[in-house]
Amino acid sequence: MNKKFNKLYNILCVIFALIFIAAMIITVSALPNIGDATNPTNNEVSEKYLTDSSWETGSLNAVSGMILDYRAFDTLGESHVLFVATVAVFILLRRDEDSRKDLPTRCLNQSYEQAYDPILAKSLEFLIPAIFVFGIYVIANGHLSPGGGFSGGAIIGAAFILYLNAYGLESIERFCNSRTYLICSCCALLFYGLAKSYVFYVGANHLHSIIPVLADGSILASGLILPLNIAVGVVVSNTVYALYIMFRRGGFSR
C-alpha cells in the first residue's frame, strides 16, 4: 500500500512540475527578446547608473555604485540577513561547555580534529598570505574594478577556514575567537548602519553631505564606498568563518 502510494506521489510530483514548467514558459515567451538594446530593462535607470555613478558616487564600477549608494538600503538589509542567519545558526548549533560533555558518541565524530599535516602546513605558509592579500585587494578596489566587500569577504573567510584546517584550532584561537568575532561583526555593522543613517538623513532632506567624493579614479575616490566595502568584507568573512566553525563543533572554544 505504502509503496503504491509512493509511486503515485512521484508521478503526481512530475505532473505538477510539468504543468508549472509549461505555465512559466508561456509567461516568459511573452517577455521582450533578450539582448535587445531597446528592451524596457535598458531604460533611464540603468543609463543613470552608467553615466552618473562614476562622478556622483566616485565608483567606476557601476554595480558597486549602485548597491552601495543608489540602492544602499537593500544592501544594508542584505548584510543584516547574514547577521541574523548567524544568529539563527547559533541558536540551533551552539553547545555550552557542560552540554558538550554528555553528547552521544555519534555526535562526537563531528568534532573530529585533523592531524597535523606537514605538507599542507608548509605550503599554506606561502599560500595563506597570498590569499589574504588578494582578498584585501578585491575589497579595496571594489569601486574601481570587479569585486567588492562580498566577494573579497568570502575570499578572506575561505583563508580563515584553510588556516584552521592546517594549523588546528589552538593556533587560530589566538587571534580569532568568539570575542573577536562578536566585536568585529558588531563594529562593522554598527559603522555600516550609522554611516548609512547619516547618508539617508542628508539625502532625504537635501542637505549637504560632509563626506567628500573625489571621483578621480584613486583608491579614496569614492567617499563612503571604500569604508562600506571594508565593513561588508569584515561581516562576510566573519560570517563565513563563524558558520563553518559552528557546523564543525558547535562553538568557538574547545
Binding site: E44, E56, D69, Y70, R71, A72, V199, V202, G203, A204
Partner: peptide, 10 residues
C-alpha cells in the same frame, strides 16, 4: 533613502 530618489534609488 539617499540623495537620489525614484526611479534610481530606494
Amino acid at each position: 533613502m539617499g540623495h537620489y530618489g525614484a526611479p534610481a534609488g530606494n
